[in-house]
Design a binder for these strands. Structure first.
Lengths: 120, 120
DNA sequence: CCGGATCCGAAGCGATACTG
DNA sequence: CAGTATCGCTTCGGATCCGG
């Protein structure tokens, strides 16, 4: 019974990783969580190191998984923005947990001397 | 000021993803979170689809980042086990948040007809 | 039992240039 | 502004064989 529970739990984690895994998706979701909607170029600038190609691909996948909604406005030229869906917002606790731990981790790293510093 | 806050937040998330990103690390950590210590072959069987090569590599990286501790016992043949460090356990809230969301997500998927079913 | 060594294809990701 | 197209590098990850 314990085994069954475990494999089910592991599978649900694997499923989640397929949705939000990779280098960019969680960053995009976190951005949109703190500020929605955002335009394509706003996200691009906010992340700073993502290429348009990757941003476009990631947004498309997030949209297909219904975590992000894309809206197009018939202005001239066309303007587009992105926002979290309700389902996207339901990832809030994951983002907060990861962000909090990450901040703590960064502090931990800062206070450790680097290997290079030790070897000198 | 908001911009500063955001980029710092994004960087801490990127840092975290470098530690626990990828296909396997979170699965291994979650396993060890529910049961420590575990032996190499136990983890291998519990995950079911990981190759020894990958498991070895991932465990080594987790150990270098002080999330997992490796202990060797001078039996014959040598036996080894792995357990979470205290720092590893500090990721508990992240694992729980992700696992909970994943279970919910799996239920959501189950209740949606697949594309193939719709097209028939 | 616990891995290491090697090979190899697949996937992720980046750089650059281009378009409506 | 909001992407697409092409290319190529690098990493991921599986398969297989080997060793203490």
């Amino acid at each position: 019974m314990k085994q069954t529970y475990c494999t089910a739990h592991l599978r649900s984690i694997s499923d989640t990783l397929e949705l939000i895994g990779g280098k960019w998706k969680l960053l995009i979701l976190t951005l949109l969580h703190s500020e929605s909607p955002m335009r394509f170029s706003e996200i691009e600038r906010a992340i700073g190191t993502i290429t348009p190609r990757m941003l476009s691909k990631e947004l498309k996948e997030l949209e297909q998984n219904e975590l992000v909604e894309r809206r197009v406005y018939p202005t001239m030229p066309v303007s587009v923005d992105y926002r979290l869906t309700d389902y996207g917002y339901s990832l809030g606790s994951v983002m907060v947990a990861l962000g909090d731990w990450g901040k703590n981790h960064r502090r931990r790293i800062m206070h450790q001397p680097t290997i290079e510093a030790v070897n000198r």
